[in-house]
Each structure stands twice: as C-alpha cells, then as structure tokens.
Nucleic acid binder design. Structure first.
Lengths: 220, 220
DNA sequence: CCTACCGATCGGTAGG
DNA sequence: CCTACCGATCGGTAGG
C-alpha cells in the first residue's frame, strides 16, 4: 500500500465541502461557524481542521469547484455536433441540471463571492465571465444580427437571471422541477429573442424597444 | 414648538437606514458591524443607538420599507386605466425604476431576508407574495388561457428573475440603464409568452414544451 | 457624545 | 515514527 493520505480522506473531504456548502447556502458564509460545520459534518472541530486549512479555504473551494463544473458543461456543449438552437437548449438543460444537483454550491457562488479576497474573487469571476461569454456567443449564433448591436450581452444576462433566480422559488421537493422548467425557459427566451427589435430592424416590429436599442447600439 | 423628537430626527434616521442598507448590500448583514455603520453614517456608536434600537431593527426596517414601496407600485398600477399589456409594461418600468433608485435596499431584501426572525420574515415574504400574485394576475390578463394551466406563476418568477438579477451585472454608473432595459425586458417576456405552448394548444407551436407543460397542468 | 468595558462567541490550536 | 483524532482552551473581536 502506498504512503500518503489515509484511504477515504478525499471522500471525507468532499463530504465536508458539500456539508459546508449546505450551511453557507442556508445561513450565509459569515453567519456560519466552524463549530456548526463540524457538527453538521459529524466530525470534531480539530478533525475538521485536518481536512481543511481554515474556514476561508472552504469558501474558495466551494465556489471554485462549482464554477469549474459550469465551465466543463460549456466545453462539452461546444464539442457536441449541434446546430445553434439545439446547442443553446443543451446549454440551458445541462445548466439547470447542475443547478438542481448542486443547489447549495450555486447559491454560495452567487451570494458569498463578495467574501472572497480580491485575487480569489477575480479568478472565480473570470471563470464566470468565460461561461457568460460562451452563452453570449451561442445566443448570437442563433441570431447573428444581434452581434453587431451588442444586445446579445444584456440578453444573455436576462437568461442567466431567469435560471439563477430559480433557486429562490423552486422548492427541491416540489412537483415543478428544474428539468421541467428547462424547455419552458428555452421557449420563452427564444420566442422573446424574435420579439426584440434590432437597430437595423431585420426583425418583426415590437413596440417600445427601438429607442432603447439605438441607445445601446451607439456604444458599438 | 411641540415637544418630542428633535427637528431633523426623522431625516437623520432615514440617512442612517440608507447608509446601513448600503453597507449591508455590499458586505452582507452579518459581516457588517455597528461600528462600521456608525463610521459610515458619520455618527458615534452611542448616537447611532439613539436612532435605532439595535442592529436587527435596521435589517427589519430596510427590508420592510422596500417591500412596502413595491406594494405601493402595484397598487398604483392597478388604479391606472390601462389595457393588460400596457399595465404589464407600466409594472415592469416602474419596478426597474425603483430598483435603480433603491439598489441597496433591494439587494438587502433579496439576500438578507434569511436573517429575519420567523415572524418578521413571514410578514415580509407575505408582502412579497402579494406583489408576485399581482404580477401573475397582470400576466394572465394578457393571455387568459395561461390561467387554467397554472403556468403563469412559474412564468412570473422567470420575469422576476430577469429583473431581480439585474443588480448583479448592471453597474450604477454604466451606459446601460435600468430605464433602457425596461422595454427590452418587456418585449423579451411578451414575445416569449407567445412561444410557450399551452396544454390545450390555443397557441402557436413551440418545440420541446408540450411534455413539461402537461406535467405542470396535471397539478390543477 | 466619547472612552471604556461587559458577556458571549468567534476561528483556530495547544497538549495528550 | 506516523496518522488521526479528542477535550480543553488559546488570543481577538463581535454586538451592545
């Protein structure tokens, strides 16, 4: 048997990360004590410190692991041989699937990132920006005229708003699931895209948008 | 001059609430100390406690004031003589206007409500549920067939997702403003509504939605 | 209004 | 010698 970590060390470590994520998500990072983490994980506090350097490292790893999971989803979707609309539906579906499986980590990523030190925060936010940029490109691929207007970026953020807000109202045990919402989100977003009028107006008219769209297009 | 509070008491008190909301929004409720609040407000700590009973009361009043502001917007929109789509656009526009003016309070309402004690939290969440219910009705009024499917409730939450997520990506000083986004949000949402297929299928077809919509309709 | 200070609890680590 | 822990308590700092 090779020297090094005891068998089960990594397993125990992952359970601690999952368990800490649950507490951070429910109570917030600062309001959660290491005593609570230890209690919830079923280990003593000194033992807890055997698996993690300190409380801060818990936050860093939870956030970083999750954002890396999202980056992996994007990379996988880019490899699949799909047309632009199908790729977008794949992205939306796989993101909501991960959101459902890692709800605690996702909430920590969105609410507790402000507690990261600048260097760590920037690394996590950079990864997040990569993910958002990939979505924005996938969206622009479904409607290339969007690209010149720069409108695809705020539209991407509206899509993330729909998805990232779901943890506030979709109960884990409820009848309505993330999986059931995926096609609804996709239909709503694609249907809406066609209703947003572009500055050059290749699209069907929609009232009230022209002025705002021009204001945005002026930046480009 | 009548006895009672010194002149300017209420003004000073409101400034303290606004200033505390700013800190809570940036650092979170638990991570913010009363020393920081006093310093940022330009008063001594004992003086701060002359205007507010304790730290918890700051949180309660910030959240409650803001949700009451939102309830007032809904009440006003219901009085205006508008057809259903115009009323929805009015609601979206006025909400984003308040979001822009009270960004700190809005973030506290959405992120720190978990630190309220059960009785206070339920009171605030009840008010929030009233606001959401009014939006859901206004949405259903624009497309009555939605009501029977119960789909208008998750769709309402997707709309709130788009709006409530905006504070994460719309910088206060940026070229893109809440006001400019209002018609874009409205167009995207209305355009999307028409693409969501209903169980009884009075609507134009949209792929991938039928199964999920039926799953939801089964609850009714 | 300020300095000073309390009871309680924090994150983290000693000895065994 | 190593690891994997426990009971007890450290120095600092929070709200008030």
């Amino acid at each position: 048997m090779p020297r090094g970590r005891a068998p089960g060390y990594d397993t125990q470590r992952e359970q601690i990360l999952a368990c800490a994520a649950e507490l951070f998500a429910r109570q917030g990072y600062t309001a959660t004590s290491m005593n609570q983490v230890a209690l919830a994980c079923g280990v003593s506090k000194p033992s807890l410190y055997h698996y993690v350097r300190d409380k801060y490292q818990l936050l860093v790893e939870i956030a970083e692991d999750h954002v890396n999971r999202l980056k992996a989803l994007v990379a996988r979707a880019q490899q699949l041989p799909l047309d632009p609309p199908a790729r977008m539906r794949e992205l939306i579906g796989s993101f909501l699937e991960v959101y459902a499986d890692a709800q605690a980590a996702h909430r920590v990523l969105t609410e507790d990132v402000k507690f990261l030190e600048p260097v760590d925060r920037e690394r996590v936010l950079d990864a997040q920006r990569e993910v958002v940029a990939a979505f924005a490109e996938a969206i622009a691929d479904t409607r290339p005229a969007l690209r010149a207007t720069e409108l695809h970026k705020p539209l991407t953020m509206l899509l993330f708003g729909m998805m990232n807000w779901m943890f506030t109202w979709l109960q884990p045990g409820g009848k309505l699931t993330h999986a059931a919402m995926a096609p609804i989100v996709a239909d709503l977003f694609f249907g809406g895209l066609n209703a947003v009028r572009l500055p050059a107006s290749q699209a069907p008219p929609a009232r009230g948008t022209a002025a705002a769209a021009k204001k945005i297009a002026r930046r480009a």
